[in-house]
Design a protein around this nucleic acid. Sequence first.
DNA 1: ACGATTTGACCGAA
DNA 2: TTCGGTCAAATCGT
Length: 319
Amino acid sequence: MDSSWHGNLPANRKKAIDELVRGQEIAAQLKLVVNRSIGVDESVFAEDLVEKIMNSFNSSLYMLNGGEFDEVASQIPQVGSPCWGGRKSSKDSGESGKGTAELKLKDRRGCYKRRKSSHSRTDDSTTLTDDGHAWRKYGQKVILNAKYPRNYFRCTHKYDQQCQAIKQVQRIQDEPPLYRTTYYGHHTCKNSLKASQFVLDPRDHRDDIDSSILISFNSNGDHASNKPSDSLLASFQTVKQECCHKEDNMNMPSYDPTTQYNNQASSSDYLLSPDDYMSAFDQGDVISGVNSSCTTSSHSLDMDGIMMESADFDDDFGF
DNA sequence: ACGATTTGACCGAA
DNA sequence: TTCGGTCAAATCGT
């Protein structure tokens, strides 16, 4: 209508988005409380409700964002760009070592664009549950005034399928341990979304608004409910402590549990039953996104539905 | 050999 | 100038 209305629109929209994000975070916290405070059966139901709430927030955010889910993608250099086109791994080049100093100093200006505040989803959890996607860590950063470093992950299929999904994982609390995962972008890799299609309202299928909504086996009537994922977490903490022997700074261990989790176990949190999950794995098909990061090793499904590389976890973590 | 992680350097946004 | 996100060589693990 009038210019004032249009003038206020962006500010109002931003406020609305902020509120929705806040609600989203609160819902995530509620999810944690629900998980801890009620029985398994009720938990499944309650968690489903929480997921629906979160889906509503996601959908609202999507609409407020004008459906521009490619914001992230558009800000990340595409494969065709000069820098990516010429990208070589250290082994591809075969000339690592010598001359790398010069290569290091090669002009990387314009090689990447940094994310601005684009659509994101945060998920706070006391456990390091995975979202069913195959992630690869590409960085870790000490954040000012943060006790723990932030870990950066990209989709394993960033290069082979141009999947632009990324996430950040950071431990944000000591006791109980709390991890915040922030997802940016969405998966475009073809393995990504059997799960989310079930989770999302069919109306939202088009945008794959949030391919990472979790439904964890942890809450799915597992027979280890008396030793929930804390056991896994404890294991991670063990790793952390071990590694801290070589770390002077206890506040920023180079081995963060988030790293171990993403490294060794592309895991769980599928909408399939554990049996289905495993059979899908056997077929090497349905969950190929996960599969791709685990193809070289055998797997087992532990009590919490966490997929692990059996050798490592059995040996190092006492599973 | 190959794929994943580590980590210091580089870069852009604030 | 500072801070945080990303890159990529070196390194690790299987």
